[in-house]
Design a protein around this nucleic acid. Structure first.
Lengths: 154, 154
DNA sequence: CTGTTTTTTAGAATGCTTCTAAATTAGGAT
DNA sequence: ATCCTAATTTAGAAGCATTCTAAAAAACAG
């Protein structure tokens, strides 16, 4: 895991007067030991491989800390649970395409859309905080060729 | 309520072999008797003013029918309940800006973003189904002037 | 070490949404 | 009109991600 991410988290905890614990450490290691998107439940499983004592409640209490710290992005794809994205620091502007055929989530970056969003936000009299584009789509060629991996994990 | 919307719903019900009931009728009347966004619970309250017997379960079962019919849009703003938007037919391309200061939801249309989204989707090898832009922002001038209506209903 | 405060844990609670089983109703057939 | 059968409705239970709670454990300053 990136040393700058680690440093940023340590600084954040110190600034907020939050303590370092083995559980938080395990959750952080797990959270940034992958580049995949994951759910709170996924993260619980991953963190428990590092430190058996980690509980569900602690995962749910740690996630918003990492989000507020700015190292993790929370994403709502319209399902009844949230996904978290650890690639936020390296790619802060990416957006998501969600395939309704196979549940795959494809990331993309597009500077043009970002600029447009900023313009629109200003025009409406607001200051942008966070922006997301969410495109639902179907598999196209992939689907026709029969290579669409149905129900793939997001 | 728009006659074409009514017609479209009637046709859809017939095509699907679904029956007309007083409850469904009340829900439809309520759903398109406003231009505001609403939740399932809001709709229940509105529909019950028209027909007292409408139950929560029927509202929840009717909503996806209207969404599938294409007259109502389901929207997920990252809260733990969904909003529904009855202005879909007249303004199929609008997007949303959510103010994190006051919870207000501002609609906007932007053809440029829509075109971009279609291009990106094709480039990635998909066919667009539905697209949404969601911008979280803060109140800017309004906020400075003290006119930001905190916690206003979406 | 000691004391105080934060953090953790397991399980209960919450709140939106979906499901269930029994009662009712719609609408075609007689 | 009336009957029949399948769709629909209702109230309440169940489901599920997330949050809360109270007691136990751990962090850290002095």
């Amino acid at each position: 895991m990136d040393l700058r991410t680690r440093q940023r988290i340590d600084d954040f905890l110190k600034a907020k007067g939050l303590r370092k614990t083995v559980q938080r450490d395990a959750i952080v290691q797990a959270a940034f030991g992958t580049t995949e998107h994951y759910t709170a439940e996924d993260l619980l499983v991953m963190a428990r491989k590092i430190e058996r004592s980690v509980s569900r409640a602690t995962v749910y209490r740690t996630l918003p800390i990492l989000v507020e710290c700015g190292v993790l992005r929370e994403m709502d794809f319209g399902r009844d649970f949230k996904y978290y994205d650890p690639n936020f620091v390296d790619h802060p502007h990416h957006n998501h395409l969600i395939c309704v055929d196979c549940d795959r989530i494809v990331e993309f970056e597009d500077l043009g859309i970002n600029t447009m969003e900023d313009c629109i936000t200003k025009r409406l009299g607001f200051s942008p905080r966070s922006k997301m584009v969410r495109i639902e789509a179907t598999c196209d060629e992939l689907h026709r060729l029969g290579t669409c991996r149905n129900r793939a994990k997001g």
